[in-house]
């Protein structure tokens, strides 16, 4: 089966500053694909590059066989990719209901209502907070809301940028469980950038290790976890 996402020899960065060097990866449909690496290695930049938020100097990105290199973010969103930034991923001043309504902005109103009630079924905690402003939600609840907002558009591929940053361990585990459920129950392909490399590699199918903007490892997630040197060297994993 052809991969759902194909990144080939990409050089990318911000302005004149190149961050990624000749990065290639292939993501199979319905996989959880984990990107790990030390701080400042370009993990978030890679996610942004897929979503069209950086400058691509060289290489190509194909999604579902369609060329998306250099397309603006709102066009990429239409192809079925959702991107969840680490922060500012919800409208803090708007209520939970309004946030969901905005996520369904481009859908016809009856379809929008249907999708909103679908995601509320999935995340009942949001149902109880519909009238509250998003700024009153806890960090974990905000991630859930952001997830719900992306689900409204029924994406095929979701890009998560450190969804558990600044969350308590228990909450972090819950968020990661929700992400696994997205794949298991809805068949959504996941690309996950995660600080907690061990947790991420345990739940992942495939993994990519980025160091200094270059690919150090590409292959099975479990294999990376058990790799004799790489884990200890770059990810702070004990042997």
């Amino acid at each position: 089966m052809a991969p759902i996402l194909e990144v080939k020899g990409v050089d990318a960065g911000y302005g004149k500053l190149q961050i990624l060097f000749n990065v290639s990866m292939e993501v199979e449909s319905k996989d959880i694909f984990v990107i790990v690496g030390p701080n400042g290695s370009g993990k978030s930049t890679l996610l942004k590059t897929i979503f069209g938020l950086t400058r691509i100097y060289k290489g190509s990105i194909r999604f579902n066989g369609e060329e998306i290199t250099g397309k603006p973010p709102h066009d990429i969103a239409k192809t079925g990719i959702a991107y969840l930034p680490q922060t500012d991923n919800v409208f803090a001043q708007l209520t939970v209901a309004e946030n969901l309504k905005m996520a369904a902005y481009t859908l016809p109103s009856d379809l929008a209502e249907e999708r909103i009630s679908e995601v509320l079924e999935r995340f009942p905690l949001l149902k109880a907070r519909l009238k509250d402003k998003a700024m009153t939600l806890s960090g974990g609840q905000r991630q859930i809301l952001a997830m719900a907002m992306s689900l409204i558009r029924k994406p095929k591929l979701m890009l998560f940028d450190e969804p558990t940053a600044a969350l308590a361990p228990k909450l972090a585990a819950e968020i990661l469980d929700e992400i696994i459920k997205l794949r298991d129950e809805l068949g959504i392909t996941i690309i996950l950038v995660e600080q907690n490399a061990k947790k991420a590699l345990q739940m992942g199918d495939k993994a990519l290790l980025l160091v200094g903007g270059r690919v150090m490892y590409r292959g099975g997630a479990k294999e990376l976890l058990e790799h004799p040197e790489l884990g200890a060297l770059y990810l702070g994993l004990k042997k």
């Binding site: 973010p73 709102h74 239409k78 409208f91 708007l94 309004e98 905005m102 902005y105 481009t106 907002m149």
Partner: peptide, 20 residues
């Protein structure tokens, strides 16, 4: 809906843009 979108776009134009 448009008024809500106005508040959304003023608060976080990038996010609003990605939502269409």
């Amino acid at each position: 809906k448009f008024g809500t979108a106005m508040r959304a776009a003023i608060e976080n134009p990038q996010l609003a843009e990605t939502l269409g």
